[in-house]
Design a protein around this nucleic acid. Structure first.
Lengths: 340, 340
DNA sequence: AAATAGAACTAAAAGGTTTTCGGAAACGTA
DNA sequence: TACGTTTCCGAAAACCTTTTAGTTCTATTT
């Protein structure tokens, strides 16, 4: 066990041991000029011997920058926050930046509390991760540091937001279905109070319009759950017996749909092709057949958000809502009907 | 947008505005004695007016404590790390503690890098979250701060580790199956190189031994996936036609098992009861019937780990591996066979 | 040998806060 | 008035590092 509360070793300790001034130690350790090679060597050895680590607190106090950003999330489950965090950490990684993670659990009070705490620690910037793609109240007003919104955009057009291109993602899916010969395409998605559901439905409309086709029935709005997928399958298979493809608004819906479709004797993907959304490997890599899915590229989104936060810290701001392209991960559930 | 690089307001600004010394401001703001009520009021108003936030960097430099802990995780997906993080954040929350999250992605070099970075920032302690319950190399040697291991224990018995009680969790499951009248119980679980799989199998053995019963066939070790659950179901239903319960080592395995069992015409839970492990709501709340599952209580584990880290920071260490009890979440998949 | 240029090094200040200690004011008592 | 006691306030030190401006050393040139 650790915990010896022995006073931490400081730059002066290194200086005494090496027999030089602290200024020289600082320069030697930071690779600055005007230090003789053998002196630098002596300092390095002394530092090594004492296992000296410069106190970042002191350095940061001096420079006024903490080399830290706050990541404020609301989705405790981490479904969307985590990939963004990973991307951000990746972008910062090499640069010795640290991420302080705070989960507000959808509570405004807690969020304000966290913001205050982060500000008093002098974070250099903030990334706010929404729990959905619905716009959320801005917190940037009167904050002394730049803020970047990821996944859920700010409702203030002057803020910088990065969101996945749900319309484009849905179009990718539809185009792929059309390219593999499907023509009677239905769409099952989540609740109407999710912008993601509305956007994806719009993408379907546009994708089909491009090809001069009609959607097979109205978009079915429900929930993001597997259960709704099963329920929608019952309805669709009954109402539209000649359906040859379904684009689902989430992998969960798709998993549910496929389960019921199989039970009802439809061959997948021969009779009906299925595409999901989110490319949540837990599901998409476990369905039968393996599920083709739209991947919103969240890790890249986080990466980009972090890079832009960097730029904003340096004063280069690019306000507005930036939509980030999705990509389609093609698996077995959309193989062409084929002769097999 | 924010980003005005106006010099941050300091305690001196407040002092000037209130017409007192900075010492008085400090005392007034921190609720110390020896400051007259009206003076304190004046200071508070001045601070409010300038929206002054004390610079935590300066305070921490002085006290030598950063009121920050590092959370080092290896499971990028966050499957286990996140609940632990939430629990830890909860435990710290009120106390103005902050969490710096670092993901090492299973890379030793990256881990060391992160540890160095955290130490130079003078974190008060470290929580290390393993990616499995297998013991992992200790990092506590020669670290100047206390370390607590969560989920994956340290291989050094002098360290403090908190792990879920997998043996006990499995016993809970078996006892529940026995209590609902099941007698021919099989066990399907993950790969043998996971301690979790071994432990749960051991729990099954003990649970059945308590009741003087034999396990229905050998434990089937495979993978943690749904696919393996389906495969195991094929084998089990063939080899042991009179099976009346299956305890699965993960919810994914259970979901796969149930899917195939249904396809093979078994009525669930009438013919066969099923229990999963992890209580991963994404799955357990979506299976048909809803899945009874052992919940390893990870959030509580994280909470406890954080509390003990606190204690360790204050010098109270309790070395050893502490196993934390699981709880059984009973849903429909284990309803008694009943007359219905 | 002296002068000079350049390299190598150091003293000191700065950054914002808390805390200690000494001093001043206010008040009561003799 | 003189003195003691509280009560309140402020000056200054401490935390640890980086940077600036200045000082000392070394080597080269005259």
């Amino acid at each position: 066990m650790a915990g010896r509360r022995s006073r931490a070793v400081t730059i002066s300790d290194v200086a005494s041991l090496a027999g030089v001034s602290i200024a020289t130690v600082s320069k030697a350790l930071n690779g600055k000029d005007n230090v003789r090679a053998d002196t630098r060597q002596r300092v390095l050895e002394a530092a090594e011997q004492l296992s000296f680590r410069p106190n970042a607190l002191a350095k940061n106090l001096l420079t006024g920058q903490s080399r830290t950003v706050g990541l404020l999330t609301s989705d405790s489950a981490g479904r969307f926050g985590i990939p963004v965090l990973l991307g951000a950490e990746n972008a910062f990684g090499a640069g010795e930046m640290a991420v302080m993670l705070c989960d507000a659990r959808g509570d405004v009070i807690r969020e304000q509390h966290h913001v205050r705490m982060l500000l008093s620690r002098r974070v250099d910037g903030l990334i706010v991760v929404g729990e959905s793609t619905n716009p959320r109240p801005s917190i940037s007003r009167d904050l002394p540091v730049p803020v970047v919104y990821a996944y859920g955009p700010s409702d203030d057009a002057d803020d910088v937001s990065f969101v996945p291109d749900d319309v484009g993602g849905a179009m990718l899916a539809v185009r792929h279905l059309l390219a593999t010969g499907r023509r009677r395409i239905a769409h099952v998605t989540g609740p109407t109070d999710y912008k993601a559901a509305i956007d994806r439905a719009e993408g379907v409309r546009r994708g089909l319009a491009e090809a001069g086709l009609e959607q097979a029935g109205e978009t079915l709005f429900g929930a993001w759950s597997q259960r709704w997928g099963r329920q929608a399958a019952e309805m669709l298979l009954m109402a539209q017996p000649d359906l040859d493809a379904v684009f689902c608004g989430s992998d969960q819906i798709a998993a549910g749909f496929m389960e019921t479709a199989r039970e009802r004797g439809r061959r997948l993907p021969a009779d009906i092709a299925v595409i999901g959304y989110d490319n949540w490997e837990v599901l998409s890599a476990e369905t039968r057949p393996l599920l083709t899915s739209v991947d919103p590229n969240l890790e890249r989104l986080g990466h980009t958000a972090a890079q832009h936060l960097f730029a904003a810290i340096d004063g280069k701001v690019a306000p507005g809502i930036h939509t980030m392209p999705c990509r389609l991960v093609i698996r077995d559930s959309t193989a062409p009907p084929g002769p097999s």
